[in-house]
Write a protein that binds this DNA or RNA. Structure first.
Lengths: 221, 221
DNA sequence: TTCCAGACAGGTCGATCATCCTGTTTTCAC
DNA sequence: GTGAAAACAGGATGATCGACCTGTCTGGAA
């Protein structure tokens, strides 16, 4: 009896496998598809507002595949922060900062590029890091630690630049640590205001003010 | 039969009414209790992370009462922004700003008080306005408009002070609008960082930096 | 070739969510 | 006093959520 049922089931599955699509094993691809969809959804809609089913559809993966790569939603959240959010901060802030000689010019350029991108897509979805930080850092200690670490890298890169500039006499009268905090805070806060108002105005304002502030410190006496 | 049941039920209800609490009609009180519980939960946990049942228990109201005052969760969210969030911004920022003569001193005092309060309760739950703004302003146009309006009054109050100070020659060389934006953004962003790190450090940094920045503008030539 | 662990399919599960319903009590206008 | 409307009680309801299950398939090691 059991054997018969098994045979019947087997043949049915075989039929399905033939008529439908062929199965492809692509762990890295599937994982990347899921994380991509999750990053996009988490940033634009929020972590809690995004359902696992919705992500399955967006990434076009089955429930089994999803459960295999990310047993819980929390794991997906952690992976998104580790693999995507940290990268975005690296690429949009830290790398431009390291490549450009003039720190104030680099910061101004970063603001300019980000504003231009927001204007282009005509929608302010906010700073990815801040969006995640605001929503879920309170509920999960591990996520909070990750977010905190990303803020740390960001702050470290900025303050290192300021410190180097002070030591090389390119700038004077500024506290590297505190100035870095102000820059990050101003950017984050401006992005929050811009998101609420759906208008890049606050970002423009802060860009101008920060440029003026740094110009004073970097001016030759 | 029906009559008998009714009588039995009636006596039971009477018994309950006697032994338990008496029903009290207190629309304003119930409404206030709900909004208080909702404000507290929304700020500390988030809007989406807070369930209606949880709020019922916290506010000690029945489902009927809840549905009567707030047919949908959205209505409660709107009420919280209108009745509480706007008030908090008014009391913590705008009023101290209006009562104090010296604008930079007022801002510094505001920072100091907020930091002291956070240290006291040993937990950084973030700026109420920003918390709400980040989480739900994207999903609901009406909420976004409300949040945007609160940001507007905040910014207006600050820039008006700066403008008056410039006109009265107390300060010079500052753009009232943009400086106001920077102050709000720096505060909001610092609060976001502080929330993520669960440490008031970023707030202290921004407090110092803003004070230094304003000191330059308010210094007698 | 055999075998096993990872990769994947598709469906089910209980819990929880926000909402709504019926019925009762209080308040207030007339 | 009487009727209507507001205020409130205590559930019920369908939908949706995240988690997990059994079973099959694939690729590589032995």
């Amino acid at each position: 009896m059991t054997c018969f049922v098994k045979l019947l089931l087997s043949s049915l599955v075989d039929l399905n496998a033939m008529s439908q699509n062929k199965r492809t094993n692509d762990p890295e691809g599937v994982r990347r598809r899921i994380i991509d969809a999750a990053y996009d959804a988490f940033v634009t809609q929020g972590y809690l507002a995004t359902g696992m089913l919705e992500l399955r559809e967006k990434a076009a993966v089955s429930g089994g595949a999803m459960a295999h790569h990310f047993p819980a939603k929390r794991d997906l959240g952690l992976a998104v922060i580790r693999d995507r959010v940290a990268d975005v901060v690296q690429q949009t802030w830290i790398e431009p900062l390291l490549t450009c000689e003039d720190t104030p010019a680099a910061i101004d350029l970063i603001f300019k590029d980000i504003i231009a991108e927001l204007v282009l897509k005509d929608r302010v979805s906010g700073c990815p890091l801040n969006n995640i930080a605001m929503e879920i850092s309170q509920h999960d200690a591990e996520m909070r630690a990750l977010v905190s670490a990303v803020f740390g890298t960001w702050h470290k890169a900025l303050s290192a630049r300021f410190k180097a500039d002070v030591e090389a006499k390119r700038a004077r009268g500024l506290d590297p640590q505190k100035t870095a905090t102000l820059v990050i805070a101003a950017y984050s806060g401006a992005m929050a205001m811009a998101k609420a108002r759906q208008d890049v105005g606050p970002l423009n304002d802060c860009r101008t003010e920060l440029a003026a502030l740094l110009a004073v410190k970097y001016r030759r006496p």
